[in-house]
Design a protein around this nucleic acid. Sequence first.
DNA 1: GCGTGATGTTGAA
DNA 2: TCAACCTCACGCC
Length: 248
Amino acid sequence: MPEGHTIHRLAQDYAERFSGRTVRVTSPHGKHLFLGFRDSDWVHIHLGLFGKVGFGDAPAPPPADTVRLRLADDTSYVDLRGPTTCALITDAEKRAVHGRLGPDPLRADADPGTAYRRISRSRTTIAALLMDQKVVAGVGNVYRAEVLFRHGIDPYRAGRDITPAEWDAVWADLAALMREGVRNNRIDTVRPEHTPEAMGRPPRVDDHGGEVYVYRRANLPCHICGGGISTADLAARNLFWCPACQKR
DNA sequence: GCGTGATGTTGAA
DNA sequence: TCAACCTCACGCC
């Protein structure tokens, strides 16, 4: 569920129900959500791998025992379950969180050059760098796999072998894909000409919710070249790529 | 009912 | 590099 687009979408959904009422919602950055109370107190939420947010209309049912935080007013409620972080923090603590995050493709003030300066100096793989929130904030396992496929980049290529032109294209693509993710509340990365309908293929079976090229498609035929999609463990996460389409 | 895995991060070894 | 943490849906008995 939660990559950066989910958090930006949640910020919109919280605001729609509660802004100007009981709570205000601002400033998602990457995968961190901050609920603001009178400009100086914040509830810092990070969903981690399992966290979920569920909205509902009043009257709210009695909270199940796994609900960690409920906000409610006379028309709406929202329940938080399974977060990695749910803490009341100060403005200074909030600034510290922003300070340790890289630029977020979903924020208008983000500078992709900040990320490229790190990437271009690193011997680490581009796959690992894209998942490092200090380098880029908001990208997770799905967008990582998909954006590398869309740009024909082998996930094991070192950061310092990524050209400025490649990074500009990857960044612009992330911004566009994630913006669409916020709008639709799901991850779709397949270009119109490669959709199942366009290709005369059977529709997607995977249950993660979107139309993708490689994520969780191990051993299935590549939508473009027909070769088998590969999978491997990289830093304890599942990596997916097409060895024929993605070059070093 | 039980085992498994998942779109994430931290901190110890 | 690895365990720990948090939840829940799914497959298989």
